[in-house]
Every structure is written in structure tokens, then in C-alpha cells.
Amino acid sequence: MIKMLRIDDRLIHGQVAVTWSKQLAVNRIIVVSDSISQDPIQVSALKMAAPEGIKAFILPVDKAAKMLNDPRADRLQVLLVMNNPVEVAQLLSELTTQPSVLDVANYGRVAGIEGRHKITDTVYLSDDEVTIFKTMATKGSHFIYQPLPNDAVKSVDELLEG
């Protein structure tokens, strides 16, 4: 099962590798991105960042969906990490079983906050991206904002309204 899908500019880093992987007790971390999976340097760097005892994979969207839809994936505890809302919407529409939690934690600051609206301290979205999140919400994919396990859970739907 997919314990969580997390949107994070920094992909696998301390907050993901140390805190969430332990909290959710996952044994697989998959970074899903068409562009990163084609870049051998980023792939090897991300695999190095994964904590011991957890297998990390860096896959394009189609392949990730195919592997996660396989019945053998049901007994795995998976954490998905992505950095592109367009690909997130694509992946969610291809998955037969949806992730238990959808969390947007850090987004929009690495690419630059110019032209983006501040949603929270660590999430900045452009008009197009706001539309993507609203469209996903109408299809039943409701995101929360919770950078670390001890942080209070906030509804992204409500944050986008306010």
C-alpha cells in the first residue's frame, strides 16, 4: 500500500529520509519523475540519500504506476516523493489504489517564488498549479499540508479557499 504521497522540491532529504520513513514505517521510497529518472547523476545521488534498510527507486510516471498497480505491491509499505504537480495528477489518475495520505510539504521555492502565490511558509503555487490542485480535489484527491509528523495537519482545500 502507498502510505503517503509527498510533494517536496527537495525529494529525499532529512525530513523525508529520517522522520517520515520512520513514522510511516515504509520499506520502499519511490521518487516519481519523468525527467529525474533519465538523469543518472540525480538517480545515484537520490539512492545515496535513502536511509539504510529502505530500497529507493527513481521511476518515470508510467513505470511507477504500472509497478504500483501490480498486486505484489500490496504488501509493500511505500512512500512516494514527487516534485511536479502535473505529474502528480497524472500518476493519481493512473493508480488503481490511491495513497492513504496526500501531503504537500515544500513546493515552489526551488524553481523560484516569482509569479507564485504564497499558500503556506513552504508552499508557493502559480495560478496553473492552483487549478491543478483544485481539479484534483474535485476528483477526490484532497491534499494536506504537514511538513513534519509533529506539525498540525492543515487542509490544502481550505488554504486555497482562504
Binding site: N27, R28, K55, F57, L59, M67, D70, R72, A73, L76
Partner: peptide
């Protein structure tokens, strides 16, 4: 393959 590795412990 990568797939086999994914499902195997």
C-alpha cells in the same frame, strides 16, 4: 531487473 528488485525483500 529493477522490477524484481522492487518486489523482493
Amino acid at each position: 531487473s529493477e522490477e524484481e528488485d522492487f518486489y523482493n525483500d
